[in-house]
């Protein structure tokens, strides 16, 4: 048995090897399951590496559970092992928002916004809010990868989620990003939560600097 796999997990194949983790598809207790395994990083100081993997694994499992109280769909957690950096969870069939947007299908931008709005209203920031972490399953939005999420009401953190989303949309669909964003934004504000309104306000303030600036305004001789 390979180290890091929970007892009784029968791996079928590695679905994805990301920056910090491997995603394995397999069976456990006669269910289709996904195993997220945070593998040690050789470039990182071992002590730092272990601390990061442990705290992120525990934090992710907690967020995966907690978001459901806020009315947001996410995979069900079956087993957590912070020492191995592993989370065993339910498999969700669907297409990513990245896939859909790439193929010109913009109709889920609004419902994605609704889900993120609920998440934020419930006091959770996602931490890596790209369209690749948003799954459309049976016409419903399912959020994935809470590895960098935080349970926080901090407007700055919530605005960072929106910041990452804007950047990802711009790189994904170019000039058409504004259409997807407008739909996303209207869904995002649907819950009427003041946290969401404040986060959006903060994002707009930030537009005046950094990556949002379109023109080089400051010139001098």
């Amino acid at each position: 048995m390979r180290s890091g796999f929970p007892e009784g997990f029968e791996p079928e194949r590695m679905m994805y090897s990301g920056a910090e983790s491997q995603i394995w598809l397999g069976r456990w207790m006669e269910r289709r399951t996904v195993l997220k395994l945070r593998v040690p990083k050789g470039y990182r100081n071992a002590q730092l590496d272990e601390a990061l993997r442990k705290s992120r694994t525990a934090g992710e499992a907690l967020s995966l559970h907690e978001c459901k109280r806020g009315g947001v769909r996410a995979p069900y957690v079956y087993q957590v092992n912070p020492n191995e950096g592993s989370i065993l969870m339910s498999y969700v069939e669907g297409r990513t928002l990245t896939d859909l947007l790439r193929s010109g299908d913009f109709k889920y931008a609004r419902s994605a916004g609704v889900s993120i709005g609920r998440l934020h209203a419930h006091g959770i920031s996602h931490g890596d809010l790209t369209p690749s972490n948003i799954l459309v399953s049976d016409d419903e939005i399912v959020l994935l990868d809470f590895g960098l999420s935080e349970r926080t009401g901090d407007v700055e953190k919530l605005a960072e989620d929106l910041n990452v989303m804007v950047g990802a949309l711009r790189s994904l669909v170019g000039e058409k990003w504004t259409k997807a964003w407008d739909d996303f934004e209207s869904g995002y504000l649907e819950s009427g939560s003041s946290s969401c309104a404040l986060a959006l306000e903060r994002l707009k303030q930030v537009r005046g600097r950094g990556r949002y600036r379109r023109k080089s305004e400051r010139r001098s001789r």
Binding site: R211, R214, K215, S216, E217, R218, R219, S220
Partner: peptide, 11 residues
């Protein structure tokens, strides 16, 4: 000719 200290690479 001017200097543009905030001229970003993506522009």
């Amino acid at each position: 000719s001017t200097v543009m200290s905030r001229w970003r690479v993506d522009e």
